[in-house]
Simulated assay, not measured.
Amino acid sequence: MTPAARVQSAIEILDLVITAATSGGASADKIVADWFRSHRFAGSKDRRAVRELVFAAIRSCGPIPASGRAAMLRLAQADPALPALFDGSHHGPQPIGLDEPIGLGGTAPQWLEARLIESAIDPADWPAMLERAPLDIRLNPLRGSAELPQSGEPLHSPLGLRYPPGTPVEQWDAFKAGQIEVQDAGSQLAGHAVAALPGETVVDLCAGAGGKSLALAAAMDNRGRLIACDIDRARLSRLAPRADRAGVIIIEQRLLNPGRESEALADLAGQADAVLVDAPCSGTGTWRRNPEARWRLNSKELERLTAIQARLLDLAAALVKPGGRLNYVTCSVLDDEGANQARQFLARHPDWRAVPLDLPAGTPREPGLRLSPAHDATDGFFIARFVSP
């Protein structure tokens, strides 16, 4: 592919990303992968270059742009090499017109930037939220010590190591043997905050594909009872093979029916030493990995998510035994889903109390703490721990 053809290919992919973002379609990662599968002529260097153009253009636009071409023109304003590639050549983009629409810059749509300010996120910290994320791994003590082909940077999390983006860790023998898991440092700290101990009964209420469940099982040394729950069958189905690879044997899976979770968890009422609520959220803390997520969010969706979070916290509280722990986590930096949500839980449950978290990273955001890309070099998270009366 010529450089101009790469730009035109990126524009075509961006059109698909924009359509998906406005209609609740597939993620940008999946769209890119699907496009390459249907365009076999693109070699490895072409795929790398086109992918970099796509995500650079996404990051360059705050509000959702009018088109993929508008997004690429926004990127061209910051990259002096790009305008010349709009040359009208075969397979290349048409020359730039005088009055063409150009995507707007910024960090996010205006209403969302206002929410960041309300949540005391300094605008000087916003660029870090859109930088490309590194690759973090968690060592798995259940599979013994791992011999890694290259050394990584130690993280705040006790079993974490960091590598440059794109490091092919899934091809390493240690990964195939279950000795390491790919997991962001912030996610590792969120699991560490549960302080799960061997022999305990622990519920991972929103387990998804099970990254935190695997970390909890390792902390419990494969002893005790760990119940991994979710309403998404496809995501939960990915946990079993991951657990087998990691040597985890204590996980019980429960697929829950939305709105009827209490029935499926009735036998656990008042029985859990700890419950982790890694709640569905806006994902504002994960823009480094999913920059197009800024375009998917609106105030109505945020209200829907905060209602779900409140319901899940109340559901989790009923599972905790007297003196037990409830850990609340969201991969969001917004107070609506973090500190405010935690305060509202305490207002609804005045006998419960929040306890300080002893973590090696994070900034207090009462009644919990917040991790951020700018200050902690992790994804953005809010983490709080409550203790039952």
Rank of each mutant, 00 (worst) to 15 (best):
V50C: 09
D358R: 00
E252T: 13
L155N: 03
A215M: 09
D87Y: 02
N290Y: 12
A207W: 04
P65C: 09
D230K: 01
L216I: 07
A76G: 07
G97A: 12
N140F: 00
E303H: 09
Q110N: 10
A196T: 11
A374W: 14
V329M: 02
L148D: 01
E118T: 09
L346F: 04
A193S: 08
A374T: 11
K30Y: 13
G97P: 08
V194C: 05
T19D: 15
R288V: 14
L315M: 07
G191V: 00
G191Q: 00
P149D: 04
D230S: 11
K30T: 15
V169K: 00
L197T: 14
M220W: 03
H91Y: 14
P80D: 15
A57V: 07
A316P: 02
A66N: 09
A361K: 04
Q188D: 05
Q171N: 14
A78M: 10
E366D: 15
F86T: 00
Q253M: 13
S119V: 02
I31R: 01
I308V: 15
T378K: 01
D46T: 09
D46L: 06
P389R: 14
R260D: 12
I31P: 04
A21W: 01
P258T: 08
M129G: 11
L73V: 06
F345V: 01
G103L: 00
I180Q: 00
P241N: 15
D351A: 11
L276N: 00
F86P: 00
S60G: 07
I137N: 03
A193W: 01
G160E: 01
A246W: 08
A240T: 12
A234R: 15
H91L: 08
R304G: 06
K45A: 11
R74D: 05
